[in-house]
Design a protein around this nucleic acid. Structure first.
Lengths: 212, 212
DNA sequence: GTCTATAAAGAGATAGAC
DNA sequence: GTCTATCTCTTTATAGAC
């Protein structure tokens, strides 16, 4: 009856520990089902079946269904943040920092497409406390991106005639929602897509005078 | 016991009729709740309460909960298609046709933000038959946009070094998902946002040599 | 056209054996 | 760590009165 995960409902004191204690692949499978059917329509019986266990057994590993969603959201955001931080760490040129950040974010979001999609649309299904925690992570990341764009503006690399907030959110729209139509089995691969989306964001779709 | 709406489950023989038979504002309120809590988590009791009626009474007007979602999706897509068709009708220049289409789509999506957001994320909650019908409308619209971009490419107005499919989907990402962060009470208005998003899609965010 | 009452099914979560 | 069994609650949808 002792529960290994323990701790308070809002806390992910150590995300890696909390997740590694789970049955192998539970989180990824849960994310896939949450994306396909929605959180509310995914039953604990289905979640258990995917992990090869009974619905009752699930409650040895998690406190409740919502905690699974919470872990999916935390994992998704942590991975993206980590990827972007690592990418910009070695770069100094402001425009280049923005570019490597965009590529890193895009790759991470597409790699964890199910988790990231779930985070984007199912935050509403979290308890207010959990939602606030995930929202804080998203906010932190948005602030980072905003800072990168601002720096590039100061370096006269990014236009200033469009509100900063719109520059940021347009970028996130472009990246984040590609995961809903991207398929790893499709005609494009992740790097190609990351490149093309960045190129559209950088330069737009118009032909320039002098283009081939 | 006679149900006014009648007809087959897939059919929206006349969408306007089907919706005008509903209690005033039911569709809009349903869309708002579906967006806020998700379709599965919105109960018929809540839906009834918003319309000022009992949950049982709801079933005098609709066949089941899913039909309400179906009508929301149909309405949302119909309005966007109509707006875009009307916008391009009077314009001949290929690039200009694309531009007025984008502005019309953006305005329509933002005006019916709750319905359109619901359509985008809750299509998965429809029955296979209803989902196929909505998907067909979306596909039709995507085909229209694809054609506009292709025409502009043939007129040497749009670049051809990025796959057509990515040009289309990037555009739709940019427009469609803005409705999740746009607020009519916020700092931007619809026309401003429509203009800025189009401008980013057209020209990108980089400064050009010679910019102020 | 709306009500009350309720049938029927399914959900999340727990208990206790192994 | 997993199972079976089950409690309790909520849900959609229907029936029949008004």
């Amino acid at each position: 009856m002792a529960r290994p995960q323990g701790r308070s409902s809002t806390g992910a004191p150590d995300l890696a520990d909390a997740c590694s204690a789970l049955p192998e692949g539970l989180l990824e499978n849960a994310a896939r089902m949450f994306k396909a059917r929605g959180f509310a329509s995914t039953t604990t019986r289905q979640l258990g079946a995917m992990a090869g266990i009974n619905s009752g057994t699930l409650y040895y590993h998690i406190r409740n269904k919502e905690q699974l969603l919470f872990l999916v959201c935390l994992t998704s955001m942590s991975r993206i943040s980590e990827a972007v931080h690592a990418a910009v760490a070695e770069v100094v040129d402001p425009l280049e920092r923005l570019e490597v950040a965009v590529r890193a974010h895009t790759r991470s979001a597409l790699q964890d497409a199910d988790m990231h999609a779930t985070m984007l649309v199912e935050m509403r299904s979290l308890s207010p406390e959990s939602r606030a925690r995930v929202r804080a992570l998203r906010q932190e990341h948005e602030t980072l991106i905003t800072g990168l764009i601002e720096d590039a503006q100061r370096a006269a690399a990014i236009r200033t005639d469009i509100p900063l907030k719109i520059l940021v959110l347009a970028l996130l729209d472009l990246i984040n929602w590609a995961i809903f139509w991207f398929s790893p089995d499709g005609e494009f691969d992740i790097d190609e897509l990351a490149h093309d989306l960045l190129e559209i964001y950088r330069s737009g779709v118009l032909c320039r005078p002098g283009d081939a």
